[in-house]
């Protein structure tokens, strides 16, 4: 008995959190048993077990894989380009006051506006296919990376720069020994935000500008009232987001070994 209570005490947060999710799923599953839905609504209704069954069927049929690869290709290329562009630009903006001032209006305006407004233009330019998606993923992901890199470079401690200079370091060494290590935690946070934006870009890009991919699968299933398929697709995106976000969080924590406990969650 005491063993059980102390086990509960120790794992309370975990048990309550997971327990609540399980409870909600069970409740959802039981809705048809508890109330009779009117005919019109029954069409839109599904249960977790039916979603799981549909998910399994799509997986066996290979439909999910087919759409998945298309989505992942757009996600990775867009995010890759965003990293390749965002990091160098962030560093340069952080080091040069003039370039910072020159680019500030664009960064502010583009960052405040939801980048999805560009989608119709990209579809017009690149057609319905991977490139319009890559572009929308790119514009979504590049700003968190750029802005966080910039912040990391800007927040470098002047004293540390002086320390390294006092040992005769040149500009490149200052960059390598002080500026980059200081920016790394910021860049990782930027990466976490960028991943979220990139997935958003894939989803919405495929709703409108694609004839393949998980987003397309969701949209076309919805217009055919295949609610199970919609939820199966949403579940994949949820899983993907969670796995990626959690791995980046892990990376954040491992990189934060040198920081005092309290500052880790910034």
């Amino acid at each position: 008995m005491t063993g059980l209570t102390s086990f509960y005490r120790e794992k309370e947060a975990y048990l309550l959190g997971i327990g609540f999710i399980v409870f909600l799923l069970a409740l959802w599953q039981c809705v048809p048993l508890l109330i009779t839905l009117p005919r019109g609504y029954a069409l839109f209704f599904t249960t977790p077990s039916r979603i799981a069954a549909t998910f399994y069927r799509l997986l066996v049929e290979g439909q999910i894989q087919e759409h998945f690869y298309v989505s992942v290709a757009a996600f990775l290329s867009g995010l890759g380009i965003a990293i390749a562009v965002g990091l160098p630009f962030g560093i340069v903006m952080g080091r040069s006051r003039t370039l910072d001032a020159l680019s500030d209006p664009y960064v502010t305006a583009l960052n405040a506006t939801p980048r999805l407004v560009w989608l119709p233009l990209f579809i017009l330019w690149f057609g319905i296919g991977i490139w319009s998606k890559v572009m929308i993923v790119f514009v979504g992901a590049v700003f968190p990376l750029l802005i966080n890199t910039y912040a990391g470079v800007k927040n470098v401690d002047r004293v540390l720069v002086n320390v390294v200079r006092s040992f005769g370091a040149n500009e490149w060494q200052v960059m390598k020994v002080v500026v980059l290590p200081n920016s790394l935690p910021y860049i990782i946070v930027g990466l976490r935000l960028a991943i979220g934006r990139a997935i958003l870009g894939v989803v919405v890009g495929e709703f409108f500008g694609s004839s393949k991919g998980l987003g397309f699968m969701i949209a076309s299933a919805a217009s055919n009232y295949k609610v199970d398929v919609v939820f199966a697709g949403v579940a994949i995106f949820m899983g993907l987001s969670l796995i990626l976000t959690l791995s980046v969080k892990k990376l954040e924590n491992s990189l934060a070994r040198w920081r005092p406990e309290a500052a880790k969650n910034f």
């Binding site: 401690d157 004293v159 002086n162 320390v163 006092s166 020994v177 002080v178 290590p181």
Partner: peptide
């Protein structure tokens, strides 16, 4: 390298 400084705020690289 004939000169080296000890700083008031230590100036240690935290990482």
């Amino acid at each position: 390298q004939e000169r080296a400084m000890v700083f008031q705020e230590f100036g240690l690289l935290p990482w």
